[in-house]
């Protein structure tokens, strides 16, 4: 590993900014967040970076490292040997300062999802196999890297039409719960805009928790929408079966 590493870090705010280069000593096992902390401590005390757990569990330090959407605390600097490490804020959300972005839109959308409505009053007993499927979705740390990389939000700025993969996973978690009675299918097809997802799977690729967002979350939800809106024969069979 080189003795010195070079980082090019975005400095700026909503009005604009540019990348600024910093050279720091390399330390074995160093992650990009360590490198940014070194810059804060020795060269740029006003550098803004959001972080908390430094263990890939809080989802705070999402950013773009050499063009890839990643957690700063989970990305080792020795992954970029002999390269300048470019660190930029998430592209999809407005910059507050330097690497800190305003992700409040995501929380607004989360509040609009109908909450869990159990068929029976808690406490209840569930079989593990009934909750295995939704426990995958509960691994989400809300880093919003999936929202950041989703091209519908990122390139088409369609936040008014599509709520993004994180919201789809939240709805899948509730919709597939064995005791949930709320119906979110109309919402999914309507204002949540699941039809805008064209399953190019970038959300799955960037998920630091390894959640299979597209195959296990979005596609099964699309199929549930198809059950209701695009399969009258299947609907008839299900009604007769009931």
């Amino acid at each position: 590993m080189a003795e010195e590493i070079t980082l090019s870090v975005f400095r700026g705010d909503r009005s604009g900014g540019r990348e600024q280069e910093y050279k720091i000593p390399a330390v074995p096992g160093m992650v990009v967040l360590d490198a940014l902390h070194y810059i804060q401590a020795h060269q740029a005390p006003d550098l803004a970076v959001r972080w908390n757990c430094k263990a890939a569990h809080c989802g705070s330090c999402s950013a773009e490292i050499n063009g890839s959407a990643k957690l700063l605390c989970k990305t080792r600097v020795d992954d970029y040997t002999d390269e300048v490490i470019h660190v930029r804020p998430m592209h999809t959300f407005p910059v507050i300062k330097d690497l800190v972005t305003d992700v409040s839109w995501n929380y607004e959308k989360l509040r609009q999802i109908p909450a869990f409505q159990p068929a029976i009053k808690a406490p209840f007993t569930l079989h593990q196999r009934d909750v295995d499927r939704i426990q995958e979705f509960r691994k989400c740390i809300e880093c919003f890297l999936c929202q950041n990389i989703c091209h519908v939000l990122r390139d088409h700025s369609a936040k008014d039409a599509y709520w993004g993969p994180r919201m789809m996973i939240r709805m899948a978690e509730l919709q597939m719960h064995p005791l949930d009675t709320a119906d979110r299918i109309d919402l999914l097809k309507g204002s949540a805009g699941i039809g805008y997802c064209n399953i190019t799977k970038c959300c799955t690729v960037v998920c630091p928790q390894g959640i299979n967002i597209t195959d296990n979350g979005i596609i099964p939800l699309k199929e549930r929408v198809a059950d209701k809106y695009f399969d009258p024969l299947g609907g008839l069979v299900r009604k007769m079966h009931k």
Binding site: G67, S68, L71, H91, C202, G210
Partner: peptide, 17 residues
């Protein structure tokens, strides 16, 4: 699970060329 090097933005990354 390691994050994939598939994601690229612009042409700055050698790893995802």
């Amino acid at each position: 699970m390691a994050q994939s090097a598939e994601t690229i933005h612009g042409s700055k990354s050698k790893s995802g060329a």
